[in-house]
């Protein structure tokens, strides 16, 4: 029982991390129907910038949470500027091009960011100083760290905040209008370019937040860390229904749970024929099944009408 509970905790943490990153994918997709493949790399830049800020501040003896907060702020600013630039350089000129073109520039941006990060921060792994409370607590026989709780809480709050932003504010209404039809939104006095740029800026700030939490959780940061994370988060977004904010959360948590429980129990359930190396197979099998029966993901009806 304690093992099952532990696997559920593992899955929830992993899922919250996926969800946090998936929110960035889904926001951009929801507004402009574009898959921003560079998002995973923005997460990576956020983590590495935060790390560069953390090291000298932590060495100066400031209290841990304060250092992380400052680092997060700096990382968020850098990532916002980066997101704005990416949109301006790689996506805006292609706004009216066939849909494949921005997809390819997105991959290009992703590679450029990875290589730049490699030149700036080097090829080595960076140990992230343990500044956030990471004490392990025992809950019904399973171990959970404070940081894991923080990650789950932050992911849920971020999702709630974004839903409020999109549904309850003037900016949100402009976002929804742009998503529906940029041209008509423009006629109604919405500056679509400004809204899209803002979407990217908000998404990038979230990426910085995700980067800081992910690197703190695993204790390492590396120029390559955004790639697999981005791919998994994208999968989570699709699973939940890309374009739907609550769907990103549901998809992320579901993917995390499937991976954890899959790795934990496939072996025992199949009598050792399939081992834990089938965890990804299992996760993507679920994705395929979901997409066969619900092509727009678990919660993505609206998008399917539009696309």
């Amino acid at each position: 029982m304690d093992i099952l509970l532990q696997q559920i905790f593992n899955g929830l943490t992993l899922g919250s991390i996926y969800a946090l990153v998936a929110l960035g994918y889904t926001m951009v997709y929801g507004i402009m129907g574009l898959i921003n493949f560079a998002h995973g790399e923005v997460v990576m830049v956020g983590a590495l910038v935060a790390l560069s800020v953390m090291k000298p501040l932590a060495a100066a003896g400031l209290p841990g949470p304060l250092v992380v907060l400052v680092a997060l702020l700096v990382a968020a600013l850098v990532c916002m500027a980066l997101g704005f630039t990416i949109e301006r350089v790689a996506y805006r000129p292609l706004r009216n091009a066939p849909r494949l073109a921005p997809l390819i520039t997105a991959i290009g941006v992703s590679i450029v960011l990875q290589q730049l990060a490699m030149l700036i921060w080097g090829r080595s792994y960076h140990a992230v100083p343990p500044l956030l409370p990471a004490e392990s607590h025992e809950v019904l026989g399973a171990q959970i760290t404070e940081l894991q709780l923080i990650i789950m809480l932050v992911a849920a709050l971020t999702m709630a905040g974004l839903i409020l932003l999109v549904n309850r504010t003037k900016l949100g209404r402009a976002m929804r209008a742009t998503a529906e039809n940029p041209a008509i939104a423009g006629l109604m006095g919405v500056d679509a370019n400004r809204i899209i740029a803002l979407t990217f800026i908000i998404g990038s700030a979230l990426a910085a937040l995700a980067g800081v939490l992910v690197s703190a959780n695993y204790g390492i940061a590396h120029y390559h860390m955004g790639f697999i994370l981005g791919l998994k988060a994208f999968t989570a977004a699709v699973l939940g229904g890309i374009g739907n904010l609550a769907g990103a959360m549901v998809g992320g948590v579901l993917l995390g749970l499937i991976e954890a429980l899959g790795a934990g129990y496939i072996g025992d359930l199949t009598g050792g024929i399939l081992g834990s190396h089938y965890q990804d197979v299992f996760a993507f099998f679920v994705l395929i099944v979901v997409l066969i029966f619900r092509p727009s993901g678990l919660m993505g009806e609206k998008v399917s009408e539009r696309a």
């Binding site: 093992i3 696997q7 899959g262 129990y265």
Partner: peptide, 21 residues
């Protein structure tokens, strides 16, 4: 226990939890 991961993974809690059992 015989478990597997891959050379790009960072999260091993699932297999480690299984091993812990």
């Amino acid at each position: 226990a015989e478990e597997h991961t891959d050379d790009k993974a960072v999260d091993f809690k699932a297999i480690l939890t299984k091993i812990k059992g």
